[in-house]
Design a protein around this nucleic acid. Structure first.
Lengths: 112, 112
DNA sequence: GTGGCCGGTTACCGATCGGATACTGCTTAA
DNA sequence: TTAAGCAGTATCCGATCGGTAACCGGCCAC
């Protein structure tokens, strides 16, 4: 899903830390478990994902729910506040998509 | 203009490095000289502002024009690409303004 | 000829960020 | 009994970020 080579890293617009934007995107449709996040968000380590999730939780963008049961189960879910970030994120994505080639050109030109 | 205590630092949405967003805002209405940027962008040092400007230039968001004349004069100006960032920035500002109190509440709640 | 303004540069420094690696406690399945 | 999965922790490490302080050359006014 989020390829490390994905050009989204080219955009200067960032939401929280390095992985926060991807986390929010992953939670857009449904709550997900820790291990369900690690799969699509390629290249993230457990430690860093934990940091990102804790930070999002502190800011009230996601909730962390530990389900009492024999097997361990923790789910992360967007709060309404977190969901409200989708709108600026969409705008940022649209901007990046619209100006992707210009950004590439500028980068290349600056190497010469 | 950009008070170091300004709550805009509370928003998790960032455009480029720490000062890039303010630089773009300062150039919104007119081209400005190096020293004209240092005044409103309070707290930025020459070195860091230079870094930020160089980075924005590399990305094609601003141009740096050195005017030939006896007195030294350098002006920075938004490119069309740089100007196009104003739209996502406005959306981000609107989001931050709309959810400012929720962000504050979440921060405070996480301290207890 | 000395000081000030302009637009920086250089060297150094601490803090933070993100990543690598190893390990943990708990539970369930083979 | 052993292995695997879940949801992380603990420790260390290098790279980057942002900041301080000092300095620079060219020009100008005094």
């Amino acid at each position: 899903m989020f390829d490390p080579l994905c050009p989204s890293g080219l955009s200067p617009i960032r939401f929280g830390d390095k992985w926060a934007g991807m986390v929010i995107r992953c939670l857009e449709d449904a709550p997900r478990r820790f291990s369900e996040l690690r799969v699509p968000i390629r290249g993230v380590t457990a430690k860093v994902l934990t940091q990102s999730l804790r930070s999002l939780e502190r800011d009230g963008l996601i909730t962390r729910t530990e389900y009492a049961g024999s097997a361990r189960r923790v789910e992360y879910e967007l709060t309404p506040l977190g969901r409200s970030m989708l709108e600026p994120m969409d705008v940022a994505c649209a901007w990046a998509a619209a100006h992707w080639d210009e950004l590439l050109d500028a980068r290349e030109a600056s190497l010469t």
